[in-house]
Amino acid sequence: MILYDTFQIRQRLQLWFSGPNPFWRRFPMSQPILLDVRPLQPVERHQKIFEAWNALPVGGALRLVNDHEPKPLYYQFQAERPGEFEWRSITCGPERWEVEIRRIGPPRPREPEIAGSDVRPDWAKRAPDLEVDVREDLRQGKEPFGKIMQAVSQCGPEGVLLLRAIFEPKPLYNILRARGFESWTERGAEDDWKVYFRKAGTPPGAPSPGISPAPQTHTLDVRGLEPPEPMVMILSKLPELGPEDVLEVTHFREPVPLYSHLEEAGFSHEIMKLEEGLYRLRIRRKK
């Protein structure tokens, strides 16, 4: 009986490995395509990367080699291709950075253009009061968030800020909307976006007379994210808060740099250390 079972097992194994439909054909393992962009000029790199990415089938992957941490590229994937990719760091500097970017979903259809969105408002026709150009920062892998927020803090009532970037900074819309800014976007070349922001007045969701909806508690866990991603995610959630709502954030450290941004946007906060490496932050609108 034992010999018979062994013979059956051998037959099955032979079919699995060398039959007409072996298991490795049913579960193909796609090897990443190596793409070393270090010899290219910074201005050429993102275009080359996305050309290679657009040619990938679902399940395919790029193994990207760069001379700096490709954090701005990660933000661009988040903004333009959510749900399409999986990002895995392999080598983290200081001279060589490698990441694997795997396609886990098909390309998402482009969002339809909103009627009238191409009409430049009058306030975006005048010369901006401030201009911040972060295109070269992004190409060189530098983090531009601090520079942008510094300019935002200098923008007075009715002031206009012009931001130049190599991709549409979608996460920034919610962040500045929470501070009372409206925006208008213009695209030039593939890697040249102009976004006009105007400090228009009271932020949406700010307290107003009348009946308020029932308060809600929104939760957000930013543990495991690298700076400034926790701050960006927290600030982008602020416009969703109603007058009595609370945003409860689970964090791995006390986010001291965030506090001034909350203050300027009209929010208060409470922080509690639960244990080492675990903090609970509660954010609500000021009354």
Rank of each mutant, 00 (worst) to 15 (best):
L162C: 12
R120Y: 11
Q41E: 11
K125F: 15
L262W: 09
S30A: 05
G19H: 09
E44N: 10
P82R: 06
V256C: 09
V160A: 12
L262F: 04
P255Y: 00
R81T: 14
F27N: 03
V256I: 12
R139T: 14
I283L: 13
S117D: 02
V152A: 14
R282S: 04
L162G: 09
P28C: 15
P228V: 00
G146H: 00
S153K: 13
G188L: 02
P204I: 10
S18R: 06
H46A: 14
I283P: 14
R108M: 04
P169T: 08
P32W: 07
P209L: 15
Y259W: 03
A178K: 03
E244A: 15
R187F: 07
L238T: 01
I33N: 13
E80T: 14
F27T: 03
R88L: 15
W123P: 09
M149A: 15
V58Y: 08
D36L: 08
F267M: 07
L274V: 07
S236G: 00
G146D: 00
V249I: 13
L13C: 07
I90T: 15
K273A: 05
P22A: 00
Q11L: 11
L3Q: 07
P112V: 02
P109V: 11
R26L: 14
I101Q: 06
M272P: 15
G116Q: 04
R164G: 01
G224Y: 14
L40K: 00
R25I: 08
F77D: 03
E186K: 02
G180S: 10
H68Q: 14
Q78N: 12
E275F: 09
T202S: 05
V195H: 12
S153R: 13
F252R: 10
R81Q: 09
L138A: 02
G156D: 04
I49E: 03
P157T: 04
K142H: 15
D5N: 09
R26M: 13
E84R: 12
K273L: 06
P209K: 14
L238E: 00
F252E: 12
W24V: 01
I90F: 10
E95H: 11
D245C: 07
L274M: 07
F17D: 01
E168W: 08
L247W: 08
R187G: 06
T185F: 12
K199M: 12
H46W: 13
E229R: 01
G141C: 04
V119G: 09
R285I: 15
G141A: 02
R177M: 03
P204E: 08
L56W: 00
E98S: 01
